[in-house]
Design a protein around this nucleic acid. Structure first.
Length: 150
DNA sequence: GCCAACGTTGGC
DNA sequence: GCCAACGTTGGC
């Protein structure tokens, strides 16, 4: 089993939204690195940290799990969607997503500020300045380090 | 295939 | 709202 981290803006979709809907297709990702991970590497049962970005206290707020492995992102095919991509077709979908399920919400936000202080997390793209990767792998050690902070 | 211009992400 | 750091686009 592998570990991951996925970012989302809580104003758009946050951990409480996931708790309500239980299952969510992670649509709208338009970055090839992130797409490849969702399409090829994320497996059912993998655990994922939920990260809140672009908000008052950015940080990790809970855990989710992969319920459905890579499948075509429907929003790329919908002309009404803000994520519409005319280069993606049903026959040859360009963008993929996984579906995730709610596991738990932490008692508190493990802030980016706090994560940056952990020597064991210095290799995470997350703590690197200017890193814009919205989905990234997390090592077992990193996972356990972060869990121990919660 | 280079690279300047432009757009986006996301912390602050 | 600012701006650094990237990624993408398109002219050549």
């Amino acid at each position: 089993m592998k570990y991951w981290l996925m970012k989302s803006e809580p104003d758009v979709f946050g951990i409480d939204d996931l708790k309500n809907v239980k299952v969510e297709p992670w649509d709208g990702v338009r970055n090839y690195q992130a797409r490849n991970m969702m399409r090829d590497q994320m497996k059912k049962g993998d655990k994922v940290f939920f990260y809140h970005s672009s908000c008052k206290v950015p940080g990790i707020v809970g855990i989710m799990k992969v319920l459905k492995e890579g499948h075509p992102d429907f929003s790329a095919l919908d002309p009404e969607s803000k994520y519409y991509d005319p280069k993606s077709t049903v026959e040859r979908p360009r963008w993929f997503m996984v579906s995730v399920g709610f596991v738990k919400k932490f008692e508190r936000t493990i802030s980016l500020e706090e994560l940056k202080k952990q020597t064991a997390l210095q290799n995470m793209p997350l703590v690197r300045k200017g890193s814009r990767l919205s989905i990234m792998p997390v090592t077992k050690t990193e996972w356990e380090t972060i869990l121990s902070l919660s």
